[in-house]
Design a protein around this nucleic acid. Structure first.
Length: 492
RNA sequence: GCACCGGUGGCGAAGUGGCUAACGCGCAGGUCUGCAAAACCUGUAUUCGCGGGUUCGAAACCCGCCCGGUGCUCCA
């Protein structure tokens, strides 16, 4: 099964396979750590997670590099405002970022690369660019990329810059640049700003150079896939190509994947619109991490996703159906034997599921065969046509589903607990949804004891007491289900 | 202004020339149950923004229009 993935560079679906036959080498732009991540950021990271998980499911090894931009204008500004050096400012947001990824069950890339750990590689790249005449230094000590040195500029974003390259005609504010479109490789030191003393002068790197330098450091001069949000296509990725290919004369990344922006309530998310949410905001409102994951990956990556609270509720309920069924399989007592029709259904579901994902990661289409199989199986169970031998076949399909979606196993308590803990420290107790803490107040043993008491009451036909217990538990988010295989309970 | 993407049931969403238009959520009725929950069954778009056209045949292709969104600048 080969993944056919839309390639921005070619404008069509291309097979994504490791060019060296060993591992798929991919680079995905990571966060700029000046604040907590918001759901827009996480949609992109989640979709890249879907990609790498699906590749692994098809047996492809992955070497995934993610950068952390830990020096840029916003970081410098915010750190200055906080009165601390950036080396003290960024770590807490880096930690928060990885904590959030863990909450969302995003797999760690094989290699994390911080910009400030790779200054010398960036300096080397600027020197190489200067050597081939693609970089020049201005009076103030900054270095710029000479766009005129790279005729293919614009090939990724399909921009025709022919009318704009006439730098001499443009009214250029930054008079020292040769052309208005030339972009910064290295910014000369300014008073009070973080800087590094290097062979090309004292200063700090431009934004684009870090990705070229670090991608080549870990993946080589030419690699398989480069991914990121759609906004990065231009100018960021275009500039990366220019910087890299000008010195290597090889294709930088063969395949480019861009994840579409999401909307919130039909509008672009922004702080001024009041529709801006971090992961922590949603967890504190009582939404489960798994539901957020599900909502953000269920709309295919190339489609605009309109994020709403109704959508989160839908995702919550869909996960509930998956988990209830999963639990039913694990706890049920099935007679020996097997139902050939179920084996066939499982095989078909598995094939359809894989085919949907192989088709440009169509996550929406991929869900359908799984839910079909659940209905078919539930029907069989209800009719006593489901046997012990069927269980493993169905569980294997669910495992394939969860290898990518990863929402069935309930690990939602921990992210919520962490968010609450953080809110208490950060003085945001008022943002914690009522009942969120009460929900965690009952431990499993206490619940089991109450459930046992209810079962006894039922046996004695004391339904008033039994219902009283059920209501008490319901108030704390514990739902009880009676079945012929015994009583099940779950946390809502 | 230029460019791009989209408009499918109450909501989300798949489907891009031909089977009864997936799937999830919701809602209504039924079965089961002490009552529930879960599960299952039935119903929930005679039709895919609007108007033309191409075709034996279109939600899908073409033209026009209306509406929503995005990019062209820092942004995942």
């Amino acid at each position: 099964m080969t993944l056919r993935l839309f390639n921005t560079l070619t404008g069509q679906l291309d097979d994504l396979v490791p060019s060296d036959g060993l591992a798929l080498r991919m680079y995905a732009c990571g966060p700029t750590v000046y604040d907590f991540g918001h759901i827009g950021n996480f949609r992109t990271f989640l979709q890249v997670d879907v990609l790498r998980r699906f590749l692994k499911l098809t047996g492809v090894n992955v070497l995934h590099v993610m950068n952390i931009t830990d020096v840029d204008d916003k970081i410098i500004r915010n750190a200055a405002a906080a009165g601390i050096p950036i080396s003290e400012y960024t770590p807490r947001f880096i930690d928060a970022f990885f904590e959030d990824l863990e909450s969302l069950r995003v797999e760690r890339p094989e290699q994390i690369a911080r910009a400030t750990d790779h200054i010398d590689r960036m300096v080397e790249l600027v020197q190489r660019l200067a050597a081939v005449g693609a970089a020049y230094k201005t009076e103030d000590g900054s270095w710029y990329f000479r766009l005129a040195a790279f005729p293919e500029y614009g090939k990724l974003s399909k921009k025709d810059l022919s009318g704009m390259e006439d730098g001499a005609r443009v009214d250029v504010d930054e008079y020292e640049k040769d052309s208005a479109r030339d972009f910064a490789l290295w910014k000369a030191v300014k008073p009070g700003e973080t800087s590094w003393d290097t062979p090309i002068g004292r200063g700090r790197p431009g934004w684009h150079i870090e990705c070229s330098a670090m991608a080549m450091e870990y993946l080589g001069e030419s690699f398989d896939l480069h991914a990121g949000g759609e906004d990065l296509m231009f100018p960021h990725h275009e500039n990366e190509i220019a910087q890299s290919e000008s010195v290597t004369h090889k294709p930088f990344a063969r395949h480019w994947m861009h994840v579409r922006f999401l909307l919130v309530d039909g509008r672009k998310m922004s702080k001024s619109e009041g529709n801006f949410y971090t992961l922590r905001d949603l967890l504190l409102k009582g939404y489960k991490a798994s539901a957020i994951r599900m909502a953000l990956i269920s709309v295919p990556y190339r489609h605009q996703l309109n994020f709403t609270f109704d959508g989160l509720t839908e995702a919550t309920n869909a996960i509930e159906r998956l988990r209830t069924f999963h639990q039913r399989l694990l706890q049920g007592n099935f007679a020996a034997g097997a139902n050939p029709a179920l084996r066939a259904a499982a095989e078909k579901a598995q094939a359809d599921y894989m085919a949907a994902l192989a088709n440009d990661l169509n996550t929406a289409e991929a869900r359908a065969p799984i839910f079909d199989l659940i209905r078919t199986s539930n029907t069989a169970i209800d009719q006593s046509q489901f046997f012990a031998g069927d269980r493993d076949a169905i569980l294997a399909v669910l495992a394939s589903f969860d290898a990518v979606f990863d929402v069935i196993e309930d690990r939602d308590a921990e992210p919520t607990r962490r968010a609450v803990e953080w809110a208490e420290k950060a003085g945001r107790v008022a943002d914690i949804a009522p009942g969120l803490l009460a929900r965690e107040s009952l431990n499993d043993e206490a619940i089991d004891a109450l459930v046992a008491e209810r079962t006894l009451a039922k046996k004695q036909r004391n339904f008033a007491r039994a219902d009283q217990i059920r209501n008490e538990l319901a108030e704390k988010g514990i739902l009880i289900e009676d079945s012929k295989d015994g009583v099940r309970w779950k946390r809502k």
